[in-house]
């Protein structure tokens, strides 16, 4: 546990979020503050809206109403003369740089090597010189334990290695917050540990993280806070020990006993 969460200014502030897919309500009055250096684990049954919440935070999805503030900026809109004005695509792309996203299915670029996957953002988006960027990326690859895999294509890497490259790809953009959407769910059981180890190191380094996961051991060990989502709402939240070991809500208890088997 990093513990030293800064409780003055949240780095992510979600206010009364609502989202529907057609008539189906995916998110209902979701409000959540995440503070710098904090690790928040989102848990909940499949279909409870965890992925949609992460996608709203980095604007891959748009909420119907409510607001998300990331690093002091309102997602997707500027405020002028008491009205909201939609931001341009370019502005939204810039806002996305504040968050790094790690997908359940890695989504590495298959036509690029591990190194090229990670270098792509710094060079094409941040316009850094390729040589300098490649040097930094080599250091990142070493940090995730893949220094010797720089020239490998994703198809030549195991799932665990691919996910570590994906984490490095997100880190290369120097995000303020890292978002993880079930980063180990698509992995063979023996590969889960190497990805969790990288995430633990990241948490220990002080990175702010929002992690959707079913790895309750990881949540207990690393999370400052565990948030339980149910049918699009936040039903219960608190310190990891409390929510995981002494849940107040019956639904949380039912979910935990189902996951623990």
């Amino acid at each position: 546990m990093t513990g030293a969460a800064d409780h003055r200014n949240p780095i992510v502030s979600i206010v009364a979020l609502e989202k529907h897919f057609g008539a189906f309500r995916v998110l209902h009055h979701v409000s959540l503050d995440v503070f710098p250096g904090e690790v928040v684990c989102l848990i909940g049954a499949s279909g409870s809206g965890k992925t949609t919440l992460l996608r709203c935070i980095n604007q891959l999805a748009q909420q119907d109403s409510g607001a998300i503030w990331v690093d002091g900026e309102l997602n997707g809109f500027t405020i002028a003369n008491g009205r909201l004005h939609r931001r341009s695509e370019r502005e939204i792309a810039r806002q996305r740089l504040a968050t790094g996203m790690v997908f359940q299915r890695f989504n590495l670029f298959p036509h690029l090597t591990a190194l090229e996957n990670i270098v792509e953002g710094p060079v094409e988006v941040l316009r850094r010189p390729r040589a300098a960027a490649a040097e930094e990326v080599q250091a990142l690859l070493a940090r995730v334990g893949l220094a010797d895999k720089a020239g490998h294509y994703p198809a030549q890497l195991s799932g665990g290695q691919q996910q570590r490259v994906a984490i490095a790809r997100a880190l290369a953009m120097h995000p303020r917050v890292m978002l993880f959407d079930e980063p180990t769910s698509a992995l063979d059981p023996e590969l889960v540990g190497e990805v969790l180890a990288v995430m633990k190191e990241l948490a220990a380094s002080g990175m702010t993280m929002i992690v959707v996961t079913h790895e309750l051991g990881f949540a207990r060990e690393v999370a400052d806070r565990v948030v339980f989502m149910d049918h699009g709402r936040i039903l219960e939240q608190g310190p990891a020990e409390e929510v995981l070991l002494r849940p107040r809500e019956a639904r949380t208890q039912a979910f935990l006993s189902a996951v623990l088997g």
Binding site: E89, A93, R94, F103, R105, F109, G121, V125, L126, A166
Partner: peptide, 16 residues
């Protein structure tokens, strides 16, 4: 579609 999303997630615009 995961490729578009991964590209957007590292700050790319649609055309890039």
């Amino acid at each position: 579609t995961g490729q578009y999303e991964a590209a957007k997630a590292i700050g790319m615009t649609r055309l890039l």
